[in-house]
Write a protein that binds this DNA or RNA. Structure first.
Length: 430
RNA sequence: GGAGAGGUGGCCGAGUGGUUGAAGGCGCAGCACUGGAAAUGCUGUUUAGCUGUAAGGUUAACGAGGGUUCGAAUCCCUCCCUCUCCGCCA
């Protein structure tokens, strides 16, 4: 969340940055409530101070063996009661204000970085670079079957029976399909571990506080599956458990940067995307993903983002899958992100690049929400860490890219070289 | 799920109504001692809000939230978590 102090002291700046996202963000209710709250707080602490004085005075007299029935003590008690009555009126008012301010703050998205390109929506995202043109198969494209067709033909993807077991937007991976998925998970975890990320297997049922910490709640409740009886949610991405590993902690500055990666299944309700990507592996309610998360000092977070982007693209390069990098414009940035790159992989059947990873720098936005701070030895006070997250990569989408880019004229699919040591076969055939 | 025990500062640990933000110890930092170090001694050592140019002032926090009281770490209520034993179980 944003810093109330920054909103108070630099409201013009904050307003301008929020405007870059488009949409309507009104700071005046927050500013007004904040003013009221601080006024109340001043009065309240003065009363509290008086109350403490009274308590101490009585305590001293009693200790010296004073009689509680003397006029003096009676009078003090009487005043104490009056102060208490006043406090009883102010306290709930102030609490209510604090709750309201907090609710409003939690609704505000992060401020875009000044380097994020200006734009209204995804059409104004900026392509940074492309890789792997030599692996594009110009001219053959119309012969390449979409991944769901080749997958069903080869008997490795089963959507029909998944509907029977669960619903639409689920899949069964069968035989070599399941093995390939597993190989991809292992391959990516191995690569990211080599790159310095410490692997974690976190819970995938997570609590409300964790989802609030990373910004999925309160605004996007309809996007996650909720187990109402236990008030737990199915994680939509390992970003949530990984970032929340350190919630409410003060980390020694010497331990930064902290790198973690995790494989988890991810669950998304995909509310509002009816009719979009209804076929194939692109948009499922449950999918696998290897995620990277970094907690870093504010001084280095921008370089750390570039490095994370490389960790993600390294996977695609090893797999020889053509991709491009897009920088999201201010209007397309996710709620918690200040700066974000999407990596898109080439899907021949669609003749398009499709998102396969998203790498974001959230600045101190999640650090503040999740209360993750760091402390430098010898320095007073604490600071919020900067958090970054990126897919490294989405497994299902990688699978679809392989099924298409590695499809051969005879209807079989070759296994990319780097995966062959993870599998007992080098080609998927009927 | 049943029975019991417990949650205090970076850590250990005292503290059952009165100058207790909290004894003592460990750790850490500074100083002294030393050729240098160890040992020893002294001093200091939480975080957050508001206020102030600053020094400072003030409030809050002993798992969380309520209550009793002039005054709560200490008494009462609710919830959460941890541990032990039993049951169940991958």
């Amino acid at each position: 969340m944003l810093d109330i102090k920054q909103i108070r002291e630099n409201s013009e700046f904050v307003r301008d940055r929020l405007d870059r996202r488009g949409g309507d963000y009104d700071l005046s209710p927050i500013l007004e409530l904040d003013k009221q709250q601080r006024e109340l707080q001043t009065t309240r602490s003065q009363l509290q101070a008086r109350s403490n004085e009274i308590g101490k005075a009585i305590g001293q007299k009693m200790r010296r063996g004073g009689n509680p029935k003397t006029e003096e003590i009676k009078n003090l008690k009487e005043e104490g009661n009056q102060v208490k009555a006043q406090l009883a009126e102010l306290e709930p008012q102030e609490k209510e204000l604090i709750v309201k301010i907090n609710e409003l703050l939690l609704q505000l998205p992060n401020l875009p970085a000044d380097t994020s390109p200006l734009g209204q929506n995804e059409t104004e995202n900026v392509e940074i670079r492309r890789w792997g043109d030599e692996y594009l198969r110009g001219g053959e494209e119309e012969k390449i079957l979409p991944h769901w067709e080749i997958g069903e033909k080869l008997g490795i993807l089963d959507f029909k029976r998944a509907v029977k077991i669960a619903q639409s937007r689920f899949v069964n991976l069968i035989g070599k399909g399941a093995a390939l998925e597993r190989a991809l998970i292992n391959f990516m975890l191995d690569k990211q571990t080599e790159a310095g990320y410490v692997e974690v297997m976190p819970p995938v049922l997570i609590n409300t506080q964790s989802l609030t910490g990373t910004g999925q709640l309160p605004k996007f409740a309809e996007e996650s599956f909720h187990c109402v009886e236990d008030d737990l949610w199915l994680t939509p991405t390992a970003e949530v458990p990984l970032t929340n590993l350190y919630r409410d902690e003060v980390i020694d500055a010497a331990e930064l940067p902290i790198y973690h990666c995790a494989y988890t299944p991810c669950f998304r309700r995909e509310a509002g995307s009816y009719g979009k990507d209804t076929r194939g592996l692109i948009r499922l309610h449950q999918f696998n993903k290897v995620e990277m998360v970094k907690l870093v000092s504010p001084d280095t977070s921008m370089e750390e983002l570039e490095a994370m982007l490389k960790n993600a693209t390294a996977i695609l390069e090893a797999l020889k899958l053509p991709y491009r990098i897009i920088e999201l414009c201010t209007g397309d940035l996710g709620f918690s992100a200040a700066k974000c790159y999407d990596i898109e992989v080439w899907l021949p059947s669609a003749g398009k690049y499709r998102e396969i990873s998203s790498c974001s720098n959230c600045w101190d936005f999640q650090g503040r929400r999740a209360n993750i701070r760091f402390k430098e030895k010898g320095k007073k006070g604490t600071n919020y860490v900067h958090t970054l997250n990126g897919s490294g990569l989405a497994i299902g989408r990688t699978m679809s890219a392989i099924l298409e880019n590695y499809q051969q004229a005879d209807g079989t699919v070759k296994i990319p070289e780097v995966l062959q040591s993870y599998l007992q076969f080098t080609v998927i055939e009927k």
